[in-house]
Design a protein around this nucleic acid. Structure first.
Lengths: 219, 219, 219, 219
DNA sequence: TATGAATGAGCCTTCATTCAT
DNA sequence: CATGAATGAAGGCTCATTCAT
């Protein structure tokens, strides 16, 4: 009886094993220089085996993105749900959560920007594409929802919550990309955590209503 | 006498011609799907000719990045120099300038993030790499310098100016990437200009000293 | 005691099961596009099992050919034996029998021409190769024998009986291949039966002695 | 001025060079065992070059078929046009011509039967497919037309000319395939020419009207 | 300088076959 | 016997780059 489950678990393990190997190689060699054979070697499998678990290179890459998107989505939603905390506090928690997401998978932004290149998007299966879209929407929605709540409560300035959520995400992705490349160019210390914290602090200060005196213009 | 200069000018023209063609193709087909032959065709040249002007594909791509970096650098520096304006005002102008940069070359961020991928950086000539580093530093420096000035004048909160400049850049690159991909996924209207303006407004509000009452903690 | 036989019978059943599945898939997908896995799936077995019954892909394909060759051989021989009928009549019956063979396994000619391609022949085991040769010879022999008899009786023109038997087979295989491909190209009605009948009628008329007046030239 | 033509001629030469090499390798190794690299080596070119002249493996193979089809078509049509000869004579000439076609390219039938496999047909460009269909039709038409004429003149028995033309072709292809494989199995002498001649003699005798006394049944 | 045909290394993917369970 | 996951060799094809003209 338990056989089916065991098989399922083993399949899941291999999946993870491959994805982990892929992440390692990608981190080292970048997207375009990484070959399926590289990944197979890293996973100590044969090239053919990869195709038993992923229908192709793009699908494997897409899975990497999905996985971290799911993690991020989960984290943000669970924070959004903590209604006993103030909006401001929860937004601060979300900012912290983003750093966790980065630690969970430092490739996230590179991954995401790779995914977003049109050439990749065009080759993905409709199904995976939908999953990605849905997750993106859900994630942005979690942030936008919280900000929306803050606006209603008069805590945040009344601007389009989706735009503000976009900015929230942009700060994260922009900084990750930038710090990563600074690290590479100068092989210097990693300031990401501190800078990210500062950026979100500024962001939150910047959208607090009292920072915008006389806005919106009153009669 | 003028022969040498004429040659030089002609060479420069060809250079531009190729880069323009490259930008057009890249915009249409993306980085990985664009071949040297594509670019040659677009430039109405033969593949071989491209190699008379650029040592290889990576070098050509690097040149694209350099060109826009130079433009950006020029714009930001010229704004920094307008010492008759307030720091706050000049920062706002810089924010606007960033959008001009985007319009000058919408590929900029994709380009930059492409450049920043380790695989490319590893293959660039030391010389080009140095140029890129120098320009990056100069550009960040222009922003950081202005912010520094603002801090000294007590306008901005006293935080590491370089970190703040990084955030300034991150907001730009993050938003451009994100809005581009939203456009692609949803083929919707382009909100970049508005969102970018909002983001920088928030940023500037967020770093204004009076937004941080009691900071730094005083004895 | 019956155990050995039962095993033998079961083995035989599996053999047939696999061959039937193979024929179905081959008909659907063609030789080169059919994989062992396809066949295994169709037979509701695992790929590994196929190798317990056939030493490899080529051997399986060879078996398909052998099976129909055996059927054809049996039919032709049984007709040859009906010595109460005229040669002419028996030859006509053989012609009809060929169409039965086609119905028994429409893949026959494709199969045979596949088998005959040098690449396959080179890879077959000596044993299977011998079987095929023997059957071919026997089959041609059955036709040639009958024609020989007819020649002796003065019914058919005196030409090399083996050559005539070859032509007998060639008419069949040529027409099957051709009509099959016409069907595919034009997805039209199937004229095989009628055309085959006509062809053999012409063949028989053509070898009747009285069609060759003055042959062989007499002193 | 002459440059364009020279280029054109050189291109044509390369085309021929590749097709010749392909034919040689195919004859030696068969269709499925022949790789593009094999062909490239035989042509003393690099694999990549093959793709400058043929869009892919199938296209190259299709070209081989087209070439011989064109040759055959030309020959048959030119014979059909010799209206100063009797139908019977011209049909005999056509039969001889078929052997020439075989000598022009002994792969013809294998080629044709390869082309006709559905899996190949499905992958051909619409254009090439149309060419093949048109040529097939024209070729069959040339034979059918001649037979038709013979029927009208009361020389041949009144049966569907297309069916008779199909049989004409089937005799050829069936015999070529069969003799080829006999040659391979027994590495014996080549009887094709003689057997083919005999077959067509029988065919012609078989369709002559006087071979069918009382046909069609008269009132 | 410009050309563009040729190169050939390398990648993704398939699939016949094996073998531990 | 049966399974089916794993293998890995091999093939078709691409494309950055070169070089004879």
């Amino acid at each position: 009886m338990g056989i089916r489950e065991r098989k399922q678990r083993e399949r899941e393990r291999r999946n993870q094993q491959i994805m982990t190997a892929a992440r390692r190689v990608l981190t080292r060699k970048g997207f375009n220089s990484t070959t399926m054979e590289d990944i197979a070697k890293e996973a100590e499998l044969s090239p053919g085996t990869l195709y038993l678990y992923f229908s192709g290179k793009e699908a494997l890459y897409a899975s990497l993105s999905l996985r971290v998107l799911q993690f991020m989505n989960m984290r943000l939603k669970s924070i959004a749900r903590k209604t006993d905390m103030s909006c401001r506090r929860r937004l601060a928690l979300m900012a912290q959560a983003m750093y966790d997401v980065y630690q969970f998978d430092p490739l996230i932004v590179v991954n995401m920007s790779h995914m977003q290149s049109s050439e990749i998007l065009l080759n993905l299966s409709e199904e995976v594409l939908e999953q990605i879209k849905a997750l993106s929407r859900a994630t942005t929605g979690a942030v936008a929802g919280l900000i929306s709540e803050g606006i209603e409560k008069g805590v945040f300035v009344d601007r389009n919550p989706t735009a503000l959520a976009d900015i929230f995400w942009a700060i994260f992705s922009g900084l990750v990309l930038w710090e990563e490349s600074k690290k590479r160019l100068n092989s210097r210390k990693d300031f990401l955590k501190d800078t990210l914290e500062l950026a979100y602090r500024i962001f939150i200060k910047g959208i607090e209503k009292h920072a915008w005196p006389g806005y919106p213009p009153q009669a």
